[in-house]
């Protein structure tokens, strides 16, 4: 019974595998620098070499030119007829089916399906022996690629947040303290990643927290940023001591900013801050009084919220 390789046709296979087998050249999968025997060596020498190196097919080559291959089957026939001391040339399989190293792996898989052989010699562009390709080589490559892909997919799968997700913390922001700016958001992001909150949710929380934090650093005379995390939601409350927003509609308009040139030269003040927060938040509340201060509350739901937005 020849079970061969599974059907890896384009229609029936996962895209990542199809891409892999069509874009990977045989060169990257084969075993290079193959061990070979010369035509004049004895079958006994070939047998010794195959046993010593645990290989089941030995190419017969001289100066890179391939003449044939000695398989286990050839060896058994030679032993049965007691002709082990005869030269390899008389017992090898000639008319060998070969692959070329620049061909895609898909071609090799097709060959393994089409022919009953366990290995193919691989030739380079100058038709010289460059390597040997076995089903084992293909398996190793496929498993290695699958491991990487599955690891990536697993990390994307929804996983239950870990216990200990609940978290309350207050950070203080000082005017133009750019060195500390971003520390609070980073701490919040790290807490959420440590507790395996989904990445797209973390991204939305990070956007809201960072924009509110930098708003306080850039625009306010100082304030506090409070985080309140429960398994259901992340609440971010930004309260500052002034100066307050003169025109709330303008403040919510993308591209409008009151930042000066120095702030802009640092990459802030694009007029995207509050609109960004509103876009990613499930609940958004803004209140401001000139001379008193500004309060912004943004909630990102961890159970059922916006599915897009980040």
């Amino acid at each position: 019974m020849n079970r061969g390789l599974p059907d890896l046709s384009v229609e029936r296979s996962p895209l990542s595998l199809v891409e892999m087998i069509y874009s990977t050249p045989i060169r990257e999968v084969m075993t290079g620098d193959p061990i070979a025997v010369r035509r004049s060596e004895t079958m006994r020498a070939a047998q010794e070499l195959m046993r010593e190196k645990s290989i089941s097919g030995l190419p017969v080559a001289e100066d890179g030119r391939l003449y044939g291959i000695v398989s286990i089957h050839d060896l058994i026939l030679t032993i049965q007829s007691d002709q082990l001391d005869q030269p390899v040339e008389r017992h090898m399989t000639d008319h060998v089916v070969t692959l070329e190293e620049a061909m895609p792996l898909s071609m090799a898989i097709a060959y393994f399906g089409k022919y009953p052989f366990g290995r193919f010699p691989v030739l380079d562009a100058r038709q010289r022996l460059a390597g040997i390709l076995t089903v084992r080589d293909i398996n190793v490559t496929l498993i290695d690629r699958l491991m990487r892909d599955v690891t990536r997919y697993e990390s994307m799968l929804e996983s239950e947040p870990l216990p200990g997700l609940a978290f309350t913390r207050v950070f203080h922001a000082r005017r133009h303290d750019f060195e500390q700016g971003g520390k609070a958001s980073t701490a919040l992001k790290r807490h959420l990643s440590d507790h395996r909150v989904r990445r797209e949710l973390i991204k939305r929380v990070a956007i809201a927290a960072y924009e509110l934090e930098m708003n306080q650093v850039v625009h306010s005379i100082g304030g506090t940023l409070s985080f309140d995390v429960s398994p259901e939601r992340v609440g971010i409350l930004a309260q500052d001591r002034g100066p307050g927003i003169a025109d709330m509609d303008l403040a919510m308009t993308e591209g409008y900013t009151t930042a000066d040139d120095w702030i802009k030269s640092l990459g802030f003040g694009a007029g995207l801050g509050l609109p960004n927060v509103k876009r990613v938040a499930d609940e958004f509340y803004l209140h401001s009084e000139l001379g008193i201060g500004t309060t912004v509350k943004a909630v990102i739901r961890l159970d059922t919220g916006k599915e897009n937005g980040a």
Binding site: E179, G181, G182, I207, M214, G267, F268
Partner: peptide, 17 residues
């Protein structure tokens, strides 16, 4: 790829993944 050479760029890069 940016010309913003200051600490906040690192915060943003890290938060944005």
């Amino acid at each position: 790829i940016t010309i913003q050479a200051h600490g906040n760029t690192v915060s943003v890069a890290s938060l944005a993944g």
